[in-house]
């Protein structure tokens, strides 16, 4: 079992391991439990461990992060007359903890909550940073609030029931953290499985990196922008495929492109390392679209890709630069990236 401490802005523990429920503190007031129906069994264990009587099962996924579902959950709490000292327990993946966290941030102007992430992405990404929120029909994460949990309890047993790709997909973020911080162990994914004895330490290390970066730059002014590594092209690929390309796969392809950029800018050759990640991940194919077709997605509201768009470029593990890149370099790196995808049988 691993215990990590988030110190600021509000201190709370993150437990990762087997049997984390034994570490739960006694609750002071009533409790309500919101869970993803896909992990109903584990939710039941949580409810029993804390003697919770109010349970609400939802369908996980982006569909949960809507105003309609949000309203339903609020009404459900209100109808039960649950008071301000109620603790909300949220059991599920990143989408459910985003929704549950936002419910907790706003019900009666804010109640405490505990997070029980049941996906690798939820553990690595959503358990740190305090971001909660919803999607609007106009776009993702357009509504939200910062609200920190009282504690995060990541049970490894729950991760073992994940579909194999979902398990791997979440760890792309951990690999990214390794590249940012220069943590060699996080870059070694080939032998990671839900049963692997390394998993607990691996997850803890990935979370620790995010905690460190977030604490050094709480307002997202500088260093935290490094967390965008791989996301610039990744988001463009996701949008271009109407999200048929899963987020983790898109970020992995974005990391490959970033590695080609680093090489072009005179950095260490990280391409083989990222290709190793992609071989292990076995993602759906990347769309091989002309650079011009990706430009609108890259730019969004910006005018020139060479002037306005800052790229996070890895020069070596632990050494990154954030800077505009000349369009010619971007294009040449893109051609090399496409060539590599074709060679690996990863393009479509």
């Amino acid at each position: 079992m691993q215990r990590l401490s988030v110190r600021s802005p509000i201190p709370y523990p993150i437990w990762i391991g087997e049997g984390v429920l034994a570490e739960l503190p006694p609750l002071e007031g009533p409790a309500a439990l919101l869970y993803d129906r896909a992990v109903a069994g584990f939710a039941q264990e949580v409810a029993e461990a804390l003697g919770v009587r109010h349970l609400l099962g939802l369908k996980g996924g982006e569909g949960a992060k809507t105003l309609a579902v949000y309203g339903e959950v609020l009404s459900w709490l209100a109808q039960r007359g649950l008071p301000r000292n109620t603790t909300l327990l949220v059991v599920g993946g990143g989408t459910l903890t985003d929704l549950g966290g936002f419910v907790a941030a706003t019900y009666l102007r804010g109640i405490p909550y505990l997070a029980f992430p049941t996906t690798t992405l939820g553990v690595v990404d959503a358990s740190v940073g305090g971001k909660t929120g919803l999607n609007l029909p106009e776009g993702k994460n357009l509504v939200g609030a910062f609200h920190f949990p009282k504690g995060v309890y990541a049970e490894l047993k729950a991760l073992r029931t994940l579909p194999p790709f979902t398990f791997k997909e979440g760890l792309v973020e951990a690999f990214k953290h390794g590249l940012i911080q220069g943590e060699e162990a996080l870059l070694k994914v080939e032998d990671l499985t839900p049963e692997s004895p390394r998993l607990e330490g691996y997850l803890a290390q990935a979370v620790a990196v995010k905690v460190a970066i977030t604490e050094r730059d709480p307002l997202e002014k500088g260093e935290r922008r490094l967390l965008n590594l791989g996301h610039t092209l990744g988001h463009a690929l996701e949008a271009h495929t109407h999200h048929a390309l899963p987020h983790g796969a898109a970020v992995a392809y974005g990391l490959l492109y970033a590695a080609f950029l680093g090489r072009a800018l005179g950095g260490e050759d990280l391409v083989p390392l990222v290709l190793g990640l992609l071989r292990w991940l076995a993602p759906p194919p990347a769309p091989l679209v002309p650079w011009e077709e990706l430009l609108p997605y890259l730019l969004r509201d910006k005018k020139k890709v060479s002037q306005d768009l800052h790229w996070v470029v890895p020069m070596a593990p632990g050494r990154l630069v954030v800077q505009p890149v000349p369009e010619e370099t971007l294009r040449r790196a893109y051609a090399a990236y496409e060539e590599a995808l074709r060679r690996e049988g990863l393009g479509a």
């Binding site: 996924g61 982006e62 999607n135 029909p137 949008a239 109407h242 048929a244 759906p284």
Partner: peptide, 12 residues
């Protein structure tokens, strides 16, 4: 919004 939930009818 893009179809986020089930972007394709099957993966195999």
């Amino acid at each position: 919004m893009a179809r986020l939930e089930v972007p394709r009818p099957a993966t195999f």
